[in-house]
Nucleic acid binder design. Sequence first.
DNA 1: CGTGTATAAAACCAATCAGTTATACAACTA
DNA 2: TAGTTGTATAACTGATTGGTTTTATACACG
Lengths: 118, 118
Amino acid sequence: MDTDELDATFAALADPTRRAILARLASGEATVTELAAPFAMSQPAISKHLKVLERAGLVSRGRDAQRRPCRLEARPLRDAAGWLEDYRGYWEESFQRLDTLLDELKSAEGGDRRPGDH
Amino acid sequence: MDTDELDATFAALADPTRRAILARLASGEATVTELAAPFAMSQPAISKHLKVLERAGLVSRGRDAQRRPCRLEARPLRDAAGWLEDYRGYWEESFQRLDTLLDELKSAEGGDRRPGDH
DNA sequence: CGTGTATAAAACCAATCAGTTATACAACTA
DNA sequence: TAGTTGTATAACTGATTGGTTTTATACACG
């Protein structure tokens, strides 16, 4: 999984407008103006957000006459979720002190793969 | 789940240096200089990255004499994973066209909760 | 053909970011 | 006390972001 892809994906998700656009697209294709409608923001602003989402591969676009329908592309979300998945153990055991957990793991056995080792 | 928290978490994750820091912290506490060592980057730069991670709640710090040991805090990662989880269906069925999938779901029954509806 | 509509592109702006160097501070060490 | 180490802060810089308004493009319709 490319680090630049993760950069772009997480960066794209770090904005509430863009997350709202994705949520909207989850219910089906939409045109730019449809997407822009709910926001107190100009159409070019939304187009810019869409370009960010497109660069991250989260949105693809078709052609219907003068409209440019946007559709959700979920693969980068899967990749991001996959990255987070490596840390699941750290939040599932969060009622313990991490040090305690790590000491346990270390003294128990040597199979100590950790997140980031790919 | 607060949108500002998600903003901060995703923004913090959108940088390879910061993700590497988290990976390093997953194996246990570390001081700032230990964290800075692997990078071709000044110590203040790392301190800034740490501040970003701290603001996102991904890192907490203790005191050991003049050192400020950093520890991983995984809760925001869980929240981010939770947000992504809403989209799991969209990447699991990615071999289909989304429209087709949606049409199926819509015609099948009315329970059409979609991501973003909380 | 001209007009309206959907979208993109350009130019601009203020704010934030990501790095730098230099400096200050705090705590240990001799 | 002075020196050294670990970290933070400040001041600066160039690049990027997120928005604006204005203008251009592409298509459909009458």
